[in-house]
Design a protein around this nucleic acid. Structure first.
Lengths: 347, 347
DNA sequence: AGGGCTAACTAAAACGTTTGCGTAAAAATT
DNA sequence: AATTTTTACGCAAACGTTTTAGTTAGCCCT
């Protein structure tokens, strides 16, 4: 393929000017006369000149783009987060490069390496469920790459973080179930490694304890692959259904687990909420029109993304090394719908 | 921010070698002795050397990344398409840069300009609903940027394209409604400009005609903003409901229009399919668990993305200019669920 | 012994910019 | 008129690589 792109050198030759004059004219330098500027600008315009971004990046020492690692783009939570990131990044003249870890540590490392070092000016990352070793990120940070965590954070790395109040979100959700009269509330979550899971689990447990209810480990199921595989959720659900006392409500802690559980309950012909109520963390825009409409803990995804990006750019643009880091905690919101409707009476 | 990244020059100085020797050693050139290679490799490893991708890109004349423009990432169709693109691109050592046009021509142009010219080696684009002027893309193509269209294509530009058989998809969908006994089938689609809309509209009309039914323009509604705004869909729907003979079925032609229409029908308390049946183009993974489960025309989104990327990379890697272009047409699939269930009898 | 080979390396140019410094001419100041 | 200042431009180095074209030193061969 031949890219017959016009360069600053071509303009210079054609206009009988020096390369530096052209460069300065294009950047509207005070050193250049209006006449020359006009000449150069018009020629550039006419010939559709566009500066080579690689040359600029190389020269300037930054790429004006930031890397994003999420587990999966087709998760509405993450796509909303990305919308927020894109919005903030664009408004500050930055580009985003999105990669997916698909909940795999290997892929996460590979993506980070791919993005890494000067191809990006900073990294926004939500850890994969598999990740408990963050050496790869530590090394990058120590080499000066600004990193901001969002959603699934690591407490082994000191940097800005944007999370939601997972404990409170799960607490309120569980309380809602308890107040609705449910007695045997199960919890399906992801791998216990992630910050998000353990916080939500704590919220769930605290609500039970505060209500004088017993925490029974048999009602708590972990899906180590973050619910990427339907099979692991199916197994978890099956085990719950096989208990001598079946749960009458389920709190699902992850977007994908929530929707998959809903699907499986349909598949098993279990009436929601009559037989089992369902309450899940999810950001799907379709919660209202699901069958039944789904009581959900929703996260301010756009704002998470926006805020994380704002913080990352503040590190990137900081004159001196940033050593004071901040963790922003945003609130979740509980939307009560039919999937947890209290059973007034059996119709 | 200071990036104390190590360069090839640092290695050379430290090892008392020349820059070129180090470069060649790293690239495993036959000109370098095994001893030296080992030395360099070990030093590089230990000091976590990583080639500066910008310098490499500048030198090599390509960036090993491709640009993607879609209308919106939080549309499951597009996120699945992107998964396919990412998969193919990664397997060939390419990176993807994703941007969203949000159905706006202005943003589309801005994104393309941002990505454009040497920051990317090629472009994968699905036009925004607003777009009917493709001069910006023509210009880029004429300058040598490889472009592949998918989903929403322009026939003013000659290049590879990947689409689905929209006419057949809409035809089969409409036929399903007709065969289920629906008599007044409405069609809500996007702007008539897009290839996709007009093809689906044709399929809808053809099915009616082939069945001896009249095509009544009052039953066809256009949402010029591609359904980004709920309000325009609401208005379209309201107009349909205000007709003296209300439609008993609606075929929605776009993902977002489909889910929004479902929401609105709920809001208006209209029973699906008893009062109005709904059949829509959508790739949501939740079609099965919607209320009611949704009869849907689904597109092979992953494959669309994969194929488009494969074709783009074939242009990029082609030794000589490509002049023969191909349009790949993939089949859609109709999933029949409850939202169009034939009304055997009124319960 | 002289020429030709080869192996292993180096020097330098190039990719397209940006930028600090230098400088000639024009303008302003003495 | 002589000096200084300003204006408007050019030169060349630099960013970190890759690559072409040398350049040594040692070896083999007749």
């Amino acid at each position: 393929m031949n890219f017959d792109a016009i360069t600053i050198r071509d303009i210079a030759r054609e206009l009988h000017l020096s390369v530096s004059t052209v460069s300065k004219a294009l950047r509207d330098s005070y050193e250049i006369s209006d006449k020359t500027k006009k000449l150069v600008l018009e020629y550039a315009q006419k010939n559709n000149y566009r500066p080579n971004p690689m040359a600029q990046s190389l020269k300037k020492g930054h790429s004006k783009s930031i890397g994003i690692v999420v587990s999966s783009i087709d998760n509405q939570f993450f796509s909303q987060v990305i919308n927020g990131m894109e919005s903030e990044a664009y408004s500050q003249g930055y580009n985003v490069i999105i990669t997916q870890s698909h909940e795999s540590w290997d892929l996460e490392v590979q993506n980070v390496n791919h993005l890494t070092h000067r191809a990006i000016d900073g990294l926004l990352i939500s850890l994969s469920t598999e990740t408990n070793d963050v050496e790869h990120l530590k090394k990058l940070q120590s080499q000066g790459l600004p990193i901001v965590f969002f959603d699934r954070v690591s407490n082994e790395i000191d940097t800005h973080k944007v999370i939601v109040d997972n404990l409170k979100g799960a607490y309120e959700a569980t309380m809602h179930l308890i107040n609705s009269g449910y007695k045997h509330i199960a919890h399906i979550t992801s791998s216990a490694i992630t910050s998000v899971s353990s916080e939500r689990l704590s919220g769930y447990k605290k609500a039970l304890e505060d209500s004088g209810m017993e925490v029974d480990d048999r009602y708590i199921k972990f899906c180590t692959h973050g619910g990427q595989a339907m099979s692991e959720i199916q197994q978890a659900l099956q085990e719950l259904l096989d208990l001598e006392v079946k749960p009458d409500a389920i709190l699902t802690a992850w977007d994908r687990i929530t929707t998959s559980t809903l699907s499986l309950l349909h598949k098993f012909n279990i009436k929601i909420p009559q037989e089992i109520a369902l309450l899940g963390f999810t950001n799907t825009l379709l919660a209202d029109v699901l069958n039944p409409s789904l009581t959900a803990v929703q996260q301010p995804a756009f704002e998470i993304g926006r805020k994380a990006t704002e913080m990352l750019l503040s590190i990137i643009n900081s004159k001196r090394p940033v050593t004071e880091f901040e963790t922003v905690v945003l609130p979740t919101e509980l939307f009560i719908r039919n999937s947890t409707a209290r059973q007034i009476a059996v119709k």
